[in-house]
Design a binder for these strands. Structure first.
Lengths: 250, 250
DNA sequence: ACGGATTAAAGGTCTAATATTTAGTTGACT
DNA sequence: AGTCAACTAAATATTAGACCTTTAATCCGT
């Protein structure tokens, strides 16, 4: 049964007019099924929390083998669209993809392309000023508390490179989170680790630079506290470009 | 054979000190293999263009079944780390993940979370001014030609909403490409389609707005031609925030 | 030297059995 | 009645092996 994929050699009646057709993409069985299911999900006919039919049912209704059905489910799982649980009452439950899906993808992109330090810093320079502005606009009191807490931690750890850099990272991420923009958060989470790795070096963080960093962080924190978007943005912009230039020289 | 996953009930000698251990993640066979192979790839022991052993060989050397081996390969394929070809001399070839991998992931994220229009516009507002600045800094002559070409197309199509919006999209993407920053390009490609969809509406693009848009696009194009990064950035910033405010009112 | 048939090597698919995990159910012992 | 252990059932996870399809190389006749 199941002789799928009949490509059908399109009889010789070739009206040889200038039809140009690109390379024909031949989908695999599992892909076809995955596409259908994905369509159901993003199309809204299956919503967050709903259960998919179990594998045997899908096998029957699709006419494919269980392996192909499973392949399809694995694809959706890797895309973060379903979560599959083993055992009685297990199965595949629809869920919304989280930021971690993006983070994984972008991290792979960065590490396997050996993205240059300058590119990372440029990307950060794009995201952070806007994030700071939005944070000043939309922060809650908890957001502010978190930012201040991370700032204090960094000040306290100024003599310990590890603690300093960790605090630095946390402070920046706290601000981005306070922007309440999921896309910016996801993008920043994606690159922050790489930025951290790439600046994790004593020579890139001499004491006088750390002093400088702490001082401007303090001013940015204040701007966010006072809910002054323009000032937060301006300062953050200066901060990241200053550090970028410092890196550019070394 | 192969009785993996013995969790081993940790004898009763529970030193009940306050050790807290999170939920134990039990990996699947395919995941373990995928992790190993991924490590080989990003670790550099397998580089771009190399062939992986074929499925039967991997089955032997890993001690897993062919299905599990194939599952692992599928994961890597979905991550964009390998490309698999059928047929004699086929197999799995290592490749660097492209921007399309990021685009797919982020697009799913956006559409399945029904990301709000304002968030999209905010994210764009973060990326584009920096991209314009970098474009002014690093553009080649071909980059410039492309930007000008897209601008002309947009001017020519100003009375046709479809052509106008398409030209708009193309012009913006041309600039981002001219930044020569793969991360920014990937991020922008990821959201541009969604931004396009969300602004594809006659009422959001009345004639007087189009005129305004064309005029400022022209000035930005000129700034990039003259390689004036600060000006390009300033204008682009004004452009996107102006449009954001216009959207905010409607 | 060309072009069609053959063949070999790879991935793609199907089937069916077995293993493992998990949640509910039952039942004996408090 | 309550509780914990053993059992059972329902689902996914894994294995095994056969067969199908695609693709490139090779052979061979013209």
């Amino acid at each position: 049964m199941a002789q799928h994929r009949e490509q059908m050699a399109a009889s010789k009646s070739s009206a040889s007019s200038s039809l140009k057709l690109g390379p024909v993409k031949i989908p695999r069985a599992a892909e076809v099924l995955a596409n259908q299911l994905r369509e159901e999900i993003v199309g809204g006919r299956l919503s967050d929390g709903d259960m998919l039919p179990n594998e045997r049912e899908l096998t029957e209704s699709s006419g494919l083998s269980r392996s192909s059905v499973r392949d399809a489910l694995r694809m959706l799982e890797l895309e973060g669209l379903i979560a599959t649980k083993q055992g009685r009452n297990g199965g595949s439950r629809v869920c919304k993809p989280g930021r971690d899906t993006i983070v994984k993808t972008v991290s792979l992109f960065i590490s396997s392309r050996r993205t240059r330090r300058v590119s990372l810093v440029e990307a950060r320079g794009a995201i952070e000023p806007t994030a700071a502005m939005l944070a000043a606009k939309h922060r809650t009191d908890e957001d502010l508390a978190r930012i201040q807490e991370k700032h204090s931690a960094m000040v306290a750890g100024i003599d310990d490179l590890d603690r300093f850099l960790r605090g630095n990272l946390d402070w920046h991420m706290a601000i981005v989170h306070a922007s309440h923009n999921d896309l910016l958060i996801a993008f920043m989470e994606s690159i922050s680790h790489a930025v951290y790795d790439v600046t994790n070096d004593e020579t890139l963080n001499p004491p006088e630079v750390r002093q400088q960093v702490v001082r401007i962080h303090g001013r940015i924190t204040d701007a966010i506290e006072k809910q002054d978007p323009a000032e937060a943005k301006r300062l953050m912009e200066r901060h990241v470009t200053a550090y970028a230039e410092f890196l550019g020289m070394s």
